[in-house]
Design a protein around this nucleic acid. Sequence first.
DNA 1: AGCACA
Length: 477
Amino acid sequence: MASVSSQPQFRYTQPPSKVLHLRNLPWECTEEELIELGKPFGKVVNTKCNVGANRNQAFIEFADLNQAIAMISYYASSSEPAQVRGKTVYLQYSNRQEIVNNKTTADIAGNVLLVTIEGQDARLVSIDVLHLVFSAFGFVHKITTFEKTAGFQALVQFSDAETATSAKNALDGRIIPRYLLSENISPCTLRITYSAHTDLSVKFQSHRSRDYTNPYLPVAPSAIDGSNQFNLGVDGKKLEPESNVLLASIENMQYAVTLDVLHMVFSAFGPVQKIAMFDKNGALQALIQYPDVQTAIVAKEALEGHCIYDGGFCKLHLSYSRHTDLSIKVNNDRSRDYTIPNPAMVNPQPSVLGQQPVQTMGHQYNGTQYAPGRQQQQPTMPPQPSAGWGSSAVPPMPQHMMNNHNPYIPPASMPQMTQGMMQMPGQGGIPPFRPTHICPDSYCCQGDMIEQLMIPPQPSAGCGASAVPAIGVNTDK
DNA sequence: AGCACA
């Protein structure tokens, strides 16, 4: 029981000990360097490095007290100070008589890293961001995250200790690159040690744990039920407050998405009050306003990641807008206020800047990202120019059987049950997915236009079909 | 640059 000295720790006041305390070491000094330093004076039986908040202190324990005295004496009278990597290190007797517990699991190299994410917003760092960060050093097999008194932590499993070590050496003490986090997340520092684990047990793919080696692992219900998860990959958790207004961005827009198409799609979940479409960085976005937040939440959950047209076209990404009430200045092919009975009345001024001629709408986009080389799933009907409200214009087959391409779940990890989702209808077989479309009220599924829009590739679905809940998407497991 | 909490 060598108790810690209570006296002040000034130079030259420590009683001799076979343990020496070293400070001013270069960052992350290694055990090997300590042994090299002490070896000329005796047998180093134990070391402890990376001590202290700056990890620049260490201990060397000699087999014999005289060896420690020899080292202290030598450097006390030497013209050359003790050095590690050219940096002067300062020696003194430790106030303890032995190094305790030097070799923790944290010091033994293994293939699993224990990562502590430090920072005010550490908990907002998503597992996807961690995956991204650590994947730079090799294939990440599994990640689990958890909260301990130490804070927000993760276990990151690599194939081998070498890969893990390279990641540890490169990342320990570093911050997560800012561009991987939302702007409003304060810096997060990574503290990394080795874990004693060699193989993590991951039961589900979820927002807390991932197994990147097992594509058939079930997806945790919590991960499926969650909405708004498409942005987890970059953003961390949901930061946006819920809103009655949804911001939709449309990916892979091979075919025009008209106001009417959006109106129909989003009306499935409740009355759409207003829609405003606009271009953002060359991509189409739209704001869709519901009367209440609840409706917006349901719509978002049901539609997120789904494609308006079969075959992966016009995939919807939804987030909550900061708007609560859109200001629709003019009813045209890009914006409309459905709460006003007569659209013509809401057009106080002629169309002004930024308004596109009608005929530019509805043309097939020169999508470069997606080349439908095979004919399998193109809408057979050529997209029609979108004429206005209440016309007989027929947008090309919006598909109420929206395919789920939930980007939250990594494609490779899609479990068995989702394989049908990926099935191309051209291959025949059972419709891959439950209809997301319900007819909650008379607002939907009435009128000629709707009927035409619903030209069903899968006749079972849609307006006539009675019983399938709108959120069936997310419960289909 | 000043003593370890794993």
